[in-house]
């Protein structure tokens, strides 16, 4: 009887220690398990001076799994992994349009092993008074994606009212103030802020209809005709544009988008309206600048690869491969826009 228990106890202890050493994607510090081994061989070539990374990097994604931000972020990480041999553990921590994740990152070590993929809500949350932190409280590693805010209209409605271009739309709006219902994201959401910015710059009066969450719902409502137009992300409207139920009228960027070639930019119509959500990688403040440089290079290489460019353009989102500094300055610019309308 006693022997049986001893055997069972031994078995249990062995299993436990095996799982501790061999398993776990959280990273293996001392014993150098599977993930760690891979990393060290890859990194010594890429990092040059500093020995980074030696283990798996955690990437916090403050959005729901399967959503736009999540997919683009994960794709970028997987390309980095392919190119450098590093290992990422992507963890979803949705909540408060990113607020949960941003707050979490504040409490993490700045050793470079915990990163976060953010959107422009890092800037807007402070302007809205929801959070006390913004991009100034983190180190921006690199920018990897921009999703441009676009204005679409329900195709049938647009045909009925002879609205074919952005200028037509603006003229109609001025002739019938307050009559057009434009769906968009929740108050304080990026598209909502961009729409308000557009309204003030063009001098139009629109009935802004906020929706819970991002622009996805707004696009569907527009396709169905409950609202006549909608302001959402280029990625979010893509499906319905392909289906022909909505028509892109204007894009809030300085050059026409390759996947919506017939849509004017607001600047072409004569109004200085820029709107986008800028996605970049954040690290806790005070991270070693050498590590930041290594990370920045890795992400910029990945996001300028053909694979990433193809992936983005096939969804209607814009590949963007910029340094941390440039991303930071973009956030400063957005901060001014949001401050003026929030």
């Amino acid at each position: 009887m006693k022997k049986k228990f001893l055997a069972l106890a031994l078995a249990g202890a062995m299993t436990l220690s095996l799982t501790a050493c061999g398993g776990g994607n959280g990273g293996n510090a001392s014993t150098g398990g599977n993930g760690g081994g891979n990393a060290s061989t890859g990194s010594s070539a890429a990092s040059g001076g500093v020995n980074f990374p030696t283990k798996s990097i955690t990437m916090i994604i403050p959005y729901d799994a399967g959503g736009g931000s999540d997919l683009i972020n994960r794709r970028a990480c997987s390309i980095v992994e392919q190119q450098t041999g590093w290992s990422f553990t992507c963890t979803n921590m949705p909540g408060g349009s990113g607020a949960t994740g941003y707050t979490e990152l504040l409490n993490r070590d700045n050793d470079g092993y915990t990163l976060l993929g953010c959107t422009s809500t890092i800037v807007s949350m402070k302007q809205m008074g929801i959070l006390d932190i913004d991009h100034n409280d983190f180190d921006v590693v690199a920018g990897f994606n921009q999703e441009i805010c676009v204005l679409v209209a329900n195709t049938n409605w647009a045909e009925k009212n002879n609205i074919n271009t952005l200028s037509d739309f603006i003229d109609y709006s001025k002739a019938n103030p307050g009559s057009i219902a434009i769906g968009t994201s929740a108050v304080g959401g990026i598209w909502n802020l961009d729409l308000l910015n557009a309204a003030s710059k063009t001098g139009c009066e629109w009935n802004v209809v906020p929706n819970a969450g991002g622009g996805a719902r707004a696009v569907i409502d527009c396709a169905g005709g409950s609202v006549q137009a909608c302001a959402a992300g280029a990625f979010e409207v893509f499906g319905q544009v392909e289906a022909g139920s909505v028509k892109v009228l204007g894009v809030m960027t300085d050059e026409r988008l390759p996947f919506y070639p017939d849509a004017e930019t607001f600047q072409e119509a004569g109004f200085d309206v820029i709107g986008a959500t800028t996605r970049s990688i954040l690290a806790p403040k005070g991270t070693d600048p050498e590590i930041l440089t290594v990370l920045e290079k890795a992400f910029m290489d990945a996001t300028s690869s053909q694979e990433f460019i193809d992936f983005c353009e096939n969804q209607g989102t814009s590949p963007w491969s910029v340094s941390g500094q440039e991303a930071f300055e973009t956030y400063n610019m957005e901060m001014d826009i949001y401050a003026s309308v929030a």
């Binding site: 799982t19 501790a20 398993g23 776990g24 994607n25 959280g26 990273g27 293996n28 510090a29 001392s30 955690t58 553990t89 963890t91 070590d109 092993y113 915990t114």
Partner: peptide, 14 residues
């Protein structure tokens, strides 16, 4: 943690 790749906190790993 291993099968479904859900990160669980453990004493020796962050």
């Amino acid at each position: 943690a291993v099968g479904f790749k859900i990160s669980l906190p453990t004493l020796w790993l962050q």
